[in-house]
Design a protein around this nucleic acid. Structure first.
Lengths: 201, 201
DNA sequence: CGTCTGTTGTACCATCTGGTACGTGAGCGC
DNA sequence: GCGCTCACGTACCAGATGGTACAACAGACG
């Protein structure tokens, strides 16, 4: 195996460690030297592999976004479940405390993206739509008119993120569970699984 | 009253300008010199009035939090309205594009607080509870059992914040309005105004 | 008048920042 | 062997950073 491009194995390993570090520490006000020493390398090597600090941040943000999409795919495609059960399961997964570091990182990046900071700002292009489209499809499949499905998908996404913000701040798992259950109990009939029009064609 | 020379500025004025600057630019990766020159003063003066950069950040974050509480008080105490109408009105106010800079700042601070950065971390103590308690009271007054009222208050708060995150990222005002309407339409009967004002005193 | 107190400007400091120059091996094809 | 690329360490740079020392100027008060 020829190590062709500047970084095939080393770079990937380094990126993985960088994401883990970012999840644990955040990536605001972090210098190359700090991150490098936490990763067991030198700031010289980070610049070597990623070109610049900006390049490193781009790589980390892209990787976080990639994992987010991956998680969405893993959580959303369970077509056998009713939407309400699927929603409950997604919440149970996201609210797990082992996920918190990544969610903290997610909201940190989100907050900086909203302020236009490069390269986080690219986050905004996909952060809603990539979740909204699949969730809308679930609602449509369950028999909701498209526009209504999209509104509910949007609401479900927003409530989930808002409750995660709450959970991360208060660590009140029970209170947030109750709120999510209130939303699930209030879902339209089509989404709660009672009379799903399974053959939507 | 000594109308001081144009260069002379009091601490309160400086703080006000600092918050405005933070709302427009963010307060991540901002140096004293940058902020000072944007405020028409020198970094020397910021340190003179606030003690240190940390002291300035503390003052700004406290002020943002204070305004947030003030806004909550202004939005929440309209006891004549039904909860659903009150919610709709609150959303209409918060979604106004003139509020966006402050909301961006809010989420930026929130994101950094979640990563434990001082002094933003103090934000977390009040960011949920100070809104949750009044909203719960509204639900109880409308006839909901306390626990159910609290769950719905939490859900309403989370959905509002989640939709603001969505709105700030996508600027899709209509889509977010639809989602909020979907939530309002799904509120429990007691909150939607059908059987309002159960003789509370 | 002099003195004191609150502000402000200038000049400076040690430290840290991202980035670079350069040397040095290790591995590999020839 | 030779050359060549990748990977990495050491040493360094110019610039920016937060913070400080010190002087100067204003007005209030005796």
């Amino acid at each position: 195996m020829s190590a062709q491009s500047p970084g095939s194995v080393t770079r990937a390993t380094l990126l993985d460690a960088a994401v883990a570090f970012a999840a644990g520490t955040g990536l605001t006000d972090v210098s190359l030297r700090q991150m490098a020493s936490a990763l067991g390398t030198s700031h010289r090597m980070l610049i070597y592999h990623f070109g610049s600090k900006e390049g490193l941040l781009v790589a980390v943000v892209d990787e976080v976004e990639r994992r987010q999409r991956e998680a969405m795919a893993a959580l959303g495609d369970d077509a056998a479940l009713t939407p309400s059960e699927s929603m409950r399961r997604m919440w149970r997964t996201l609210a797990e405390s082992s996920m918190w570091p990544f969610e903290r990182l997610f909201f940190e990046v989100y907050g900086q993206a909203l302020q236009g900071r490069t390269p986080m700002v690219a986050f905004l292009d996909t952060v809603v739509e990539s979740w909204l489209e699949p969730a809308t499809a679930v609602g449509v499949r369950a028999g909701l008119p498209r526009r209504r499905a999209r509104a509910w998908a949007r609401l479900g996404l927003a409530a989930t993120r808002g409750l995660l913000l709450d959970l991360l701040a208060t660590e009140d798992r029970k209170g947030c569970d109750d709120a999510m259950e209130a939303l699930i109990a209030a879902l339209p009939l089509e989404l709660s699984g009672g009379s799903a029009a399974a053959g939507g064609r």
